[in-house]
Each structure stands twice: as C-alpha cells, then as structure tokens.
C-alpha cells in the first residue's frame, strides 16, 4: 500500500474500519478484533501500531454503546466493578508482556484468540435454567445477587464462583493488554458460564467493562508509542460509525447466515495471522 498518499490511505482505512465496526456490531463479535488483522494483513501496518489503533476504537464503541444498554437497566454494576479490579490489573500486566514479545508471537496468540472468538460467536446460548443453588458466601458478601427483567416479570438471580470468575477476568485483562482487544467474548464466558449470571446481564455488563479494561491497556500503549494519531484517527472514526449503524440495524436482523459467514471470514483471518506469525512475516 506504499503507492497511496496519506489522504488515500486514510480514506481506505476509514472505509475498512467502518465495515469492520458494522459487521462487528451485527454479529456481536466487536469491531476491534478484526481491525488489527485487517491493518496488518491487508495494509502492511506494523502489528504494534495496529493494536494501538484498534484498542482506541474498542473504547469508542464500548462507551458509545453503553448509553443504549443503560436504558435496558440490566447490567450488574457491582459485579462489573468488582471484576474490573481483575481486568484492569490484567490489562496492565498484558500490555507489559506485549512490549517484550516479538511481533510474530503476538500474531500467533492473536490468531488463536481470533479462532476461539469465531467459534464462540456461532454457539447458541441456551436459556438460563432457574438457579436454585445455595447462596454463595462471597457473592453475598459483595452483594452481587440481583434481578433482571425477564418476559414474565422481574427475576432474581444468584452469582456463583466469584474467585474462579475473577481469575478468568484477570486472563481476559491480560489478553486485552497483550493484543489490544476488548476480549468481550472471554468476559461473557466468565460471567455467563463460570459465575452463572443470566446471559443478557453478562453481555451488557461485559460491554461496560470493556471500555474500562481497554482504558487501562491504552494508558500503557500511549506511553509506549503504540498509538499513532494518523492511523488511529481513521480507525476510531470508522469503527465507531460502523458500530453505531450496526447497532441501529441489529434489532431488525436476526440472521444466522450473517453470523456464520462472518465467523468463517474471521477464521480465515485467524489462520492467516497464525501462518504469518510462524513464517515471521508479521
């Protein structure tokens, strides 16, 4: 892409980011996770600059979407805030590791996480079974048990396995800092499957945590020179607009075909990342 001047390059990147943000919002995978492979594989951008630009766009979409989620009033702010201790410290640690790792290794890890996210995005989530287990001592102490609006009125739920969930969240934070992503998929797994929060509560709480986690990574990235204004500008503006458009259309599209097609595209990107990482071309 060396034949493009800055204006052309900026417009092409903006358009690519727009599409990534749009599809990311429609499929629930998030736009940030496809931006880095797009920038590195298609435009030859160094993976560290790509991660910096992508991470900034993750903050934009998370914060931009929060206003819409808040109306539904179903995120668990106490569980979210407590778990953010794990995600933010994890993010700082992960960003520190990224500085030391060669770009090829980062690319391989990125590919593996991408592959996992693609598989995760096509899975069907079963309806929550009524939770009649014993109250959990730690979650009771932290007052995490809450209610959420279901079809047949307000339903209460209990939160379980707080230490295990905390551990998975620390891992999600490390990946966020290591790869410059929001790691929303792993956050949902921690809350939905480990801590047994209702799925809708998990996804909305995850969204509000993503911005805070990414901000922790971004602080380190910024100070280490990963955030280039000329690159981050079109990426952030593109992903944000794309995500807002995607969120607007989302209620009208319940297309499973789209999800599968996007998952296949992401799988291809993942394999490319791993291949280029191993062959030392990234």
């Amino acid at each position: 892409m060396h034949h493009l001047n800055t204006t052309e390059f900026t417009l092409v990147i903006w358009l690519g980011a727009l599409v990534a943000g749009f599809l990311g919002a429609l499929t629930g995978l998030g736009g940030g996770i496809v931006v880095t492979p797009l920038l590195t594989l298609a435009f030859g951008v160094n993976i560290r600059y790509a991660m910096g630009a992508s991470l900034v766009s993750v903050i934009a979409t998370s914060s931009g979407a929060a206003a819409a989620y808040v109306k539904e009033g179903i995120s668990n702010i106490r569980a979210g805030m407590f778990l953010e201790i794990a995600t933010t410290t994890g993010a700082v640690v992960g960003a520190g590791i990224a500085l030391k790792l060669p770009t090829g290794v980062i690319a391989i890890v990125f590919g593996v996480v991408l592959l996992y996210s693609a598989i995760q995005s096509t899975r069907i989530h079963p309806e929550l079974t009524p939770d009649d287990r014993e109250p959990d001592r730690i979650s009771a102490l932290l007052r995490m048990d809450s209610t959420y609006p279901a079809i047949d009125g307000l339903k209460s739920y209990r939160v379980h396995s707080v230490p295990a969930g905390f551990g998975v969240m620390f891992g999600a934070g490390i990946l966020s800092g290591l790869l410059g992503i929001g790691s929303g998929a792993l956050k949902v797994v921690a809350m939905d499957q480990v801590m047994r929060l209702p799925f809708k509560v998990s996804t909305t709480t995850s969204n509000f945590m993503i911005g805070v986690t990414a901000a922790a990574s971004a602080g380190v990235y910024l100070r280490q020179g990963y955030v280039d204004p000329g690159l981050a500008m079109p990426v952030m503006l593109g992903v944000l607009l794309g995500a807002l458009l995607g969120a607007r259309i989302l209620p009208k599209t319940r297309s499973k075909v789209l999800r599968v097609v996007f998952a296949i595209a992401v799988t291809v990107l993942a394999i490319e990342m791993i291949y280029h990482g191993i062959s030392g071309r990234l």
Binding site: H2, N5, T7, D228, M233
Partner: peptide, 22 residues
C-alpha cells in the same frame, strides 16, 4: 484534528510498516 492532518500531510506517503514508536 484529522481534517488539519490531511490538509498538512495529505500528499506525503505514509509508512506504518516499521515500528519506531511515537
């Protein structure tokens, strides 16, 4: 900032392939 950036640097060729840090 992006508008100013493109007015100022729009015609030069960008290079992000090598990481030098900001």
């Amino acid at each position: 900032g992006g508008v100013f950036y493109l007015i100022r640097y729009g015609n030069i060729h960008p290079n992000f392939s090598l990481f030098r840090g900001e």
